[in-house]
Each structure stands twice: as structure tokens, then as C-alpha cells.
Nucleic acid binder design. Sequence first.
DNA 1: CGCTGATTTGAAGAGAGTCAATCGAGGTGG
DNA 2: CCACCTCGATTGACTCTCTTCAAATCAGCG
Lengths: 245, 245
Amino acid sequence: MGQLWDMRPLARKLGAFVALTDDELTVLDGLHKRRRTFVAGRELVHQGQSDRSAYVMISGWACSYKLLPDGQRQIVDFQIPGDFLGLRSILLHMSDHTIEPVTDIEVTEIHVSDLLDAFASAPRLATAVLWAASRDEAMVVEHLVDVGRRDAAQRMAHFLLELGSRLTLAGMGSRDGFACPLTQYLLADALGLSSVHVNRVLRQLREAGMVTFRDGQVTFQDHDRLAEFAEFDPTYLDQVGPLLT
Amino acid sequence: MGQLWDMRPLARKLGAFVALTDDELTVLDGLHKRRRTFVAGRELVHQGQSDRSAYVMISGWACSYKLLPDGQRQIVDFQIPGDFLGLRSILLHMSDHTIEPVTDIEVTEIHVSDLLDAFASAPRLATAVLWAASRDEAMVVEHLVDVGRRDAAQRMAHFLLELGSRLTLAGMGSRDGFACPLTQYLLADALGLSSVHVNRVLRQLREAGMVTFRDGQVTFQDHDRLAEFAEFDPTYLDQVGPLLT
DNA sequence: CGCTGATTTGAAGAGAGTCAATCGAGGTGG
DNA sequence: CCACCTCGATTGACTCTCTTCAAATCAGCG
């Protein structure tokens, strides 16, 4: 299950897009500089700071967000095991957002220069990373649709279903639900709502018998009805298998 | 100005990220299968359809959007000359959105297979495309912040300023304004507002003496005050010059 | 000249925010 | 062992932004 990521998270992630050769796997293994841990709440990459390292999540949850001058924030995405942290930041040589662990997290570090060298010596790796980045962008796009065109209840439902699907792919969830360390404040900042309204909406969904969010556990009581209510179409998450053999 | 794009739009776009060699330029030129035109309103890539070609815009405006089952839509981004059309669609072998020309447009076509072959023979091109894709993602993220955490007036102001900056980089605008073929309906679907409210907000901004939107022309009457009002920080659009030499 | 599409404006209603108070669990120090 | 504190969850009352519905205006155009 989730343990698989522990070994070679990058190989696992990119292998979904490109059938990697032994040589390419060797190059990938050379990328992992060291394993690091960060404690919950202490920000990792700061908005505006330029940085030389990206990370791959091994365990725990993190979130990336943008801070507005007036103190509000918009959470762009949550990262779970197997996801990149700060990839865009190092590519653009400028962090346009902040990354903060939600729980204590474990990551492996990757230096930009090593990554670019790897692209040069194993070109198909660049293609694989491009694919992974495209899938991340597809999730941001779906998030934009959530916030722009769905009301609070649909938005919440859709968001929880997406998280459930992603966690299931990572072996950390199922159609029945998943363990979820997020607070209602975090949900509010992700969905563009107030925490008060998040609470009300969660109650609605609970009383409608569709999904329960309690004690760090999301339980899909009626997955099908919830998916219908949220108009959830997981196509954009589909893992079709290696596209380049 | 805008004419430069006409010649080798892809070379111009990628050259901003990677200093291209003659060999790489040759490979790039081999990518342009043919030049095509599409008329305004007739969709180009349909949601759910899998496709083999992406495009690079030469002239005109297009938009990419997602349709919801209830008929609402969320416009994800507008494309202007020099932008990719449908790059993510072909990479993921599945279009998760629809692309439609806003005006008549002119594009050059690129086949996926050719693109992947090009990556193999000129690896640094893959890195360049990854960079371009990352910048596109940064714009979607900023759009998400717009819709999630800014009120209607700030949202509109921020959006017009971003468009202005992008068009200026493409030689099609300035601090004074730009020609804009968008309707208020399109703005509404992009900003997650109703077209009625878009109209009201435009009036507010006009009466405040900050920006005018009329007869296909956006005029920044007071660019500085508008930028301050919108808390506009164009960092995420910055073109730092070749990152890989 | 009448059509259609885009813009404009008014009035009423709904969804979500704000303010404020309560409650419960976990942690900490006396 | 208990008072105290903090953080997150919960709920009520009120306010306000934005939507919806409706209608009028205007321009281009067959």
C-alpha cells in the first residue's frame, strides 16, 4: 500500500507515465540527495523566496497557498505522499506561493541542477516530469471550476471526492472514506469559503446521509449519491498507464 | 511587434526559457506541420475528445473552458498570440476541457508524435516546454486566487491588469490599455460572476476613474491606482530571460 | 425595417460572510 | 488533581454581496 512510496517515490510517480529503463531508474535514484522531515505548521518554501530544491512527499500532508496583502489566503492544493513539492518554484527560479506541512512530513530532497542534469542524460525523464506537471495542472483547473461555478455544498462534495480518489490511487483511501488531518479552517481557505460556512455545509451533507467529516476521518456514507450530487467526473485524474514505452 | 510571432512562434516562446542552438531551431521548424485558421465560435477541441494535435496561436484570441452538466461554464484561460492551445490535452491523451476561438484565429499545428520525437532528439526542448507549461500553470493559480478570495471589483481589476501585462509582453498592449475582443459574457464566465454583475462592476471601475472597457478597447485611465486597488503583483508573469544557456 | 446579440439598469431574493457566544478536547502548570 | 488556556467545532442572528428575473436601449445586418 502506502509503503511502496517509501522506497522510490519518484520512480513510482514517473513510472506511471513512462516505462522506465534500468538506466533511467539509476539516474532517478541518483537524484535523491537526502531524506528530510519537517514539522507541522512551519513553512517550507516562502512566497517570493527563490530556492534550489524541490521535494517529493513520502509521508504526511502539506498544502500550497498564496497569501494576499489583506491577510486572506487561498490554498491552491494539498499534497499527499507521492506528490511534488515546489517543483514549479524551482523551475521558474521564483516561488510564487508558500508551502506548509499540515502534519509532520517526510520528504526526499531534489536539487534543480541535478534534475536538469538528469534531463540531459535521460531525456525521457523530462517528458515524464512534464506529464506529471500536466496532471497537477489539471487538478488546479478542476479546483478553479469548483470555486468559480459550484455552490458551497457541491464544492465541498466535489473536493472531498477528488481527495478520496487521489488517496485511493496512493493506497491511502477507498470508496468508504479516508483519514483526513485537515481542519475546517484549511477546508475554508481551499474552497474560498468562511470556516463558519464550511461547518454548516458539512452538517448539511452529513444530515443528507452522504458524507461525514469527523475526528479526522472522512466517511462516504453514500458514495454514488454524493458523486451524483457533486457531478463528479474523475476522468481528469485517470491514470491510463505508461504513455511512452 | 506582434509580427515577430508570425515567423516562428514556437521558437520565440521557448527561446525565452532556453537559449536555443541552431540544431534545436531546426528541429523546432520541423514541428510546424501546417498553418490553419479557425472561425470565431466554432469549437476546436471538445471536452472528452482525445486528439493528436496541439497548436500555437499566431493571431487572434481563444479561450479554454470547462462545461458543467447544468450548462454553466468556467473559462480557465484566454489564449493570445504565442500561447499553446491544447498542449495538456495531447500530453494526457484526453481533453479535459474545450477550446473555442473568440475571434477568427490563425494557428500552426503540432502533432504529439512529432513533439515527443523532438524531445528525444533535442532533450533541452522538453525542458523548455516544461518551463512554458509551468508558467501557464502559474497563471491558472493566480486565476484561482482571483475567483476564490477577491471580491468582484478587485477580481475584475486584477484580471484586466494581468491581461494587459501579457499582451504587453506580446507587443499588443501598453500601460495605457489594449484592444480586447471579449464580451461581458465571456468575462463573467472567466471570473465566476453573472454578466449582469460584470456590467455593474465595470461601471464602478469606470466611474472611479481607473479603467474603461468600451467598444472592444480597454483603457487604463489610472494604471497605478488600479494596480494598487487590485493588489496586482506581476511577479508570476516575469520573464527572467533564458534560464538554461 | 425588424431581427438578433450585447449592454445597461432596476427590483427582489438567496447564498455566504461577519460577529459573537458556547462547547469540548488536549495540554500545562501549580 | 484541578484550574486554566488554547484551538477547533458548532450554532444563532444579522448583514451584504451577488444572482435572478425582467425590461429597455442600442448597434449591426439581412
